[in-house]
Amino acid sequence: MTCQELRACLGAHLDGELDLERSLAADEHLAFCMACQWAYAKERELRALLRTRLPREPAPAALRERIRSALRRADRREREGVLRRSLPWAVPVAALLLLAVGIGLWERSAPPPVVRELVAKHLMYSRLEAPAEIASASQEAVAGWFKRRVRFDVAVPDFSPSGIRLVGGRLSDLSDRQVAYLLYEKGRNLVSLFALPSRGFALPGRGWVRAGDGRFSVTEVKGVEVVIWTQGELAYALVSSLDREALLECAETVWRLVVSRKPPGA
């Protein structure tokens, strides 16, 4: 190895980055060449200077805290983002379920089975990404979709004056009965409207209230309000985590719509 060759790889030699063969050759040269020894020593001195004398201030404690809280925020956003993308109503529902644990502790009597079933269905659809089989904001389109799928006439009410918009519909079942299921939402809150033949359908025995011309059974389970009633041959149920008044308002809207659709004298 010549002086020139050695100088070219002096740094790498010091850094231990030469392969064994070249490293040995470099050592061999260094053993006999005073000028290169001197250059080597100077190179090593600079390295030592940087490693030992360069002031290194640690990251400020405030920065560490800032990063920690930024990470926590990002973590939260990410989780919520994932949930929101896949389960549009999951966050409020999860919050309600948490709340429900607390409320549940105070609850004395178990709700009627049909109410429990309705709430379970509602919560299940809340967790689905796209629960509607027909996704449409058009009342006509959704009503038309049900025409050949269920044996009864499905009224699709308009709740938009209350800020509740139609999302779509799907078939569902309740106690082994086929049910027409309409989905609405207000913000992130899902509003479920179930319609099914009332024959043999066991209505809750309590919680009946009057609103407008109708009579409705109102129950609250785990923060979810359930309004049930019958009109003619059909039973209806509205389920949502919206407040009771808002839901009763919707119930009245359905009531009026169903009344208006009935042929006179029927």
């Binding site: 290194r56 201030e57 990251a59 400020p60 920065l63 560490r64 990063i67």
Partner: peptide, 24 residues
């Protein structure tokens, strides 16, 4: 590795505020 990362940021940016933002 925050201290090391911060130090590298300081050497790259040569500016404390910039370095802190960069590290974050």
């Amino acid at each position: 590795h925050l201290d090391r990362v911060f130090h590298l940021a300081l050497r790259l940016t040569r500016n404390r505020t910039e370095a802190e933002d960069l590290v974050q």
